[in-house]
Amino acid sequence: MARINFDLQELQAFVAVAERASFRAAAEDLHLSAPALSRRIEKLELLLGVRLFERSTRHVSLTNVGRLFLDHARTALEELESAMLGISDLAVQRSGLVTVACVPSAAYYFLPSVLTAFSARHPRIRVRILDESANTVLNAVIGGRADFGISFIGTQEPEVEFESIFSERFVLAVRRDHRLAARRRIRWEELADERFMTVDKSSGNRVLIDAALAQLARRPSGFFEVAHVSSLLGLVEAGLGVAAVPRLALPVEGHPTLRGIALVAPEVSRTLGLIARRGKPVSGAARVLYDLLRQAARRAR
Rank of each mutant, 00 (worst) to 15 (best):
G144S: 03
L130W: 00
L172N: 04
A120M: 07
V171F: 04
V207K: 08
N139P: 00
L138T: 04
G204I: 00
E168A: 12
D177F: 06
L191D: 08
D147F: 08
R187K: 13
A173Q: 13
L180M: 11
R175Y: 10
F166C: 08
S202T: 11
H122S: 08
T155C: 11
R179T: 10
E190I: 03
S167P: 08
V207D: 03
M197K: 12
A182K: 04
R179S: 13
G204L: 00
A173S: 15
D193F: 04
V207N: 03
I186D: 08
R175D: 11
R126W: 04
E161K: 15
R126F: 00
A134S: 11
R175T: 14
I186H: 09
R176G: 15
M197R: 07
V127F: 02
M197L: 14
S133G: 11
L172M: 09
G143T: 01
E157G: 04
R179P: 12
R124H: 10
R124Y: 06
E190D: 12
M197T: 01
E163P: 12
F166W: 13
V127I: 05
R195L: 05
M197P: 02
D147K: 07
D131K: 02
Q156L: 11
E194R: 05
I129L: 06
N139D: 07
S202A: 07
E132G: 02
V199F: 13
I186E: 06
L180D: 10
V137N: 03
F170P: 00
I153P: 11
N139L: 03
I125F: 05
T198M: 15
D177N: 15
I125C: 05
G204K: 00
A140H: 11
A140P: 06
S164I: 10
V141H: 10
M197H: 11
R176I: 12
F170Y: 15
G204C: 03
D177H: 14
R175E: 08
E190A: 14
L180K: 13
F148D: 00
F148V: 00
L130H: 04
L191H: 09
R145P: 00
T155I: 15
P123Y: 01
R185D: 12
F118C: 03
R145N: 07
S167W: 05
R185G: 10
E190G: 05
F118T: 01
S202L: 05
R126M: 02
A120W: 08
G143H: 09
F118E: 02
R187G: 08
E159T: 14
E189R: 13
P123R: 01
K201W: 13
R126Y: 01
R175K: 14
V207L: 09
R184I: 08
P158N: 15
F118Y: 10
L172T: 05
L138S: 06
F152W: 04
F170D: 06
D131F: 01
V199Q: 10
D177S: 15
S203E: 05
M197W: 11
F152C: 01
R187S: 13
I150P: 00
A173K: 13
H122V: 01
I153D: 07
D131W: 01
T155H: 13
E161H: 14
E189N: 09
H178V: 03
Q156N: 12
N135M: 06
F148L: 01
T136S: 09
A182F: 04
S119D: 10
E157A: 14
